[in-house]
Design a protein around this nucleic acid. Structure first.
Length: 647
DNA sequence: GTAGGGTTAG
């Protein structure tokens, strides 16, 4: 027996342990084995493992007697089972060939294992080919194939297989449902997902924790968070992963508050968080720039040893960048052991959000130099940096290099950045042309970008075109209607204003109430417009008046045109000087030592007048004031804002 | 014998 061996390291899915697979070549035909023994390789152990196979190969075992044949089947099946666990496709292929070449043939059990192996290793054409030629009378066989298509696509194939099962008189079980639901999440396919949910209920699996998690994931990916929550409530025996699914559902669908609240419930229920819990919750606090929670979670991660996990670190980088602590984010980023593309993306996007274009571009260059290939999300970050900075030429250059050099097909998000960039420069007709020429279906983001650009450049025609589409795409988003109403008001078209307001009333839409919050001494203080509920209310308004006087001396003229009331139009008759962000800033001024940087958050965009006012405040009080609105960061310093007055 | 969750942009 001539042997030559090579060691292949395969990652086991469950434990991430390294499983050495030793491949041997045996005369006359290629032959192989594997060893799950720990390294270093032990010859004695190897011989014990190879022995039965060696016998089989020389036809000493699996000849005509049925008992021997059954033994052979058993040996091959257990061999294949280990290959499945190690996801070792090549040895599997060789066994398959060997069985066919030597005429040993495939028993049902061996064929099933091969389908399983091909399926988990994403060799689906092989898996299907084999599946097609064997009896399909057990659910297990269908499950493994559906699993393969659900993980690797085409996802539609998983769904057709699921439907075919019924034609064979088989019924899906508690394994089938998670697999096929995974395919629905990936597509995403809500209608089919709902149908499967009905089957789940009929089959009595709705309180199964695995099926439940899959349903939550499916509904979350389809944007139906409320339904996901109903599923969550119906499952009474919950484990950590199940909780994590619901946390992720909230965190990924723009419900960060609910995610944070659920996390507290989870802790109360006595469950210990995992890496996935922390990643979901940290990213939820990043979404609302909840720095106190974010820092608390950072501390928790550190105390429980999660902070050395790169995924947690990346989530923290993202959280600090989004919460206005870019330098802290960068320090953490530098300490990452392995900078994966997501880490670079997170940091680049962080810079872009703050309008730090130079840093964003520099990091992009560094990334390429370090040999980390940028992906489509990297380009979303870089392009949004261009659009924040109004850098038209650079934007096109990046867009073209993405397509030509990096062979990345532009997605709807890239087009959104480009529309934003063109809109920024007032080239609304070009922006509209680009939307018309897009290879992908324009979504609400693209039309939203055109709508905002129309507002800034006071263009009624493109504003109307954009709202027309947005009414179809997100009919219940009050913000869109308000922007067009603003555009009409700016143009003095009061009929237009009345029409839009009428439309909103008819549809029962109300603009969200404006809210600003500021963190002082580790405590968050939130304010509504004209808020007088704070214990320091009198001092706050005295400060607003004092600063207001200085501002007028410096040349500030409050713009009281009706349009200004539209960002926070709930406060009819109230003074714009009491807009929530100004109240929060005044609170910050009286509660922090002179010169301290103020960081204010707002749930809507800053209105035009407040933007002007805050520029004055920053100069008069010699403070750096950072306002994070729903769209971006504004760094006010010495009477200038980093957004260049475009937001 | 087959399982489920997590980082990025807008």
């Amino acid at each position: 027996m001539q042997l030559h061996s090579s060691l292949i390291k395969k990652r086991s899915r469950s434990s991430l342990a390294l499983i050495p697979c030793i491949i041997f070549s045996v005369n006359p035909s290629a032959f192989l084995s594997f060893a799950t023994s720990p390294q270093p390789y032990e010859p004695k152990r190897f011989v014990r493992i190879i022995h039965p196979l060696y016998d089989l190969h020389h036809h000493r075992g699996p000849t005509s007697p049925s008992s021997s044949s059954a033994t052979a089947s058993h040996h091959y099946a257990s061999l294949l089972q280990s290959l499945i666990e190690g996801k070792a496709i090549e040895p599997g292929k060789q066994i398959h060939a060997h069985l066919l070449v030597t005429g040993i043939g495939l028993s049902t059990i061996v064929a099933t294992k091969l389908v399983n192996l091909y399926s988990v290793c994403n060799h689906l054409p092989h898996a299907y080919c084999l599946f097609d030629r064997i009896p399909k009378d057990n659910v297990f066989l269908w499950n493994v194939l559906i699993q393969g298509y659900a993980w690797n696509g085409p996802h539609q194939a998983a769904l057709s297989l699921y439907h075919q099962m019924f034609e064979y008189g088989l019924h899906p079980d508690n394994f089938t449902f998670p697999f096929v639901l995974k395919a629905c999440s990936a597509l995403p396919a809500l209608q089919q997902g709902r149908e499967i949910h009905c089957h789940v209920i009929r089959a009595g699996w709705e309180s199964d924790v695995f099926v439940g998690a899959a349903l939550i994931d499916m509904y979350a990916k389809c944007g139906c968070v409320a339904t996901a929550r109903r599923v969550f409530d119906n499952v009474l025996v919950r484990d950590v992963v199940f909780w994590n699914s619901m946390l992720a559902a909230y965190s990924q669908n723009g419900h960060p508050d609910e995610a944070l609240c659920l996390c507290r419930e989870m802790a109360f229920a006595g469950l210990r968080p995992t890496v996935a819990t922390l990643v979901a919750v940290i990213s939820a606090s990043a979404d609302i720039a909840a720095l106190p929670q974010g820092r608390e979670l950072h501390g928790f991660s550190w105390r429980h040893g999660f902070d050395c996990q790169d995924k947690v670190k990346t989530a923290l980088v993202n959280m600090y960048a989004k919460s206005g602590w870019v330098r802290v984010a960068r320090r953490l980023f530098e300490r990452l052991a392995e900078k994966r593309v997501v880490c670079w993306n997170s940091m680049i996007a962080g810079y872009a959000m703050h309008g730090h274009t130079t840093e964003a571009f520099a990091l992009f260059e560094e990334m390429k130099k370090e040999g980390a290939p940028p992906d489509h999300i990297t380009f979303v970050g870089v392009l949004s940096a261009c659009s924040r900075g109004g850098l038209m030429d650079e934007g096109w250059k990046f867009f073209e290099s993405m397509v030509k050099e990096h062979l990345i097909e532009p997605t709807v998000q890239h087009y959104t950045c480009m529309v934003d960039l063109l809109g920024h420069s007032g080239r609304l007709d070009e922006a509209y042309d680009l939307i018309m020429r897009m290879k992908v279906r324009p979504d609400s983001g693209v039309w939203g970008a055109l709508l905002h650009a129309s507002k800034i450049h006071r263009n009624v025609m493109f504003g109307e075109k954009a709202l027309e589409r947005l009414i179809d795409l997100e009919p219940n988003d009050a913000g869109n209607y308000v922007i067009l109403s603003n555009i009409y008001a700016q143009a003095g078209n009061w009929e237009g204003v009345a029409w839009v307001r009428g439309l909103m009333k008819e549809r029962g839409l109300k603009k969200s109430i404006a809210l600003s919050w500021i963190e002082v001494k580790n405590k968050t203080h939130a304010f509504l417009v004209g808020d007088t509920s704070h214990p320091q209310s009198d001092e706050i308004y005295a400060e607003l008046e004092r600063v207001g006087g200085l501002m007028e001396e410096a040349g500030y003229v409050p713009d009281t045109a009706p349009v200004l009331h539209d960002v926070e139009d709930d406060e009819k008759g109230r003074m714009i000087t009491s807009h929530s962000e100004r109240v929060a800033i005044a609170f910050g001024l009286i509660n922090t030592p002179p010169g301290t940087r103020l960081l204010v958050n707002k749930n809507l965009r800053v209105c035009d007048d407040c933007h002007v006012a805050i520029k004055f405040i920053s100069k008069i009080t010699a403070r750096e004031i950072i306002v994070r609105d729903v769209n971006r960061y504004h760094h006010f310093k010495d009477g200038v804002c980093s957004c260049g007055d475009y937001w």
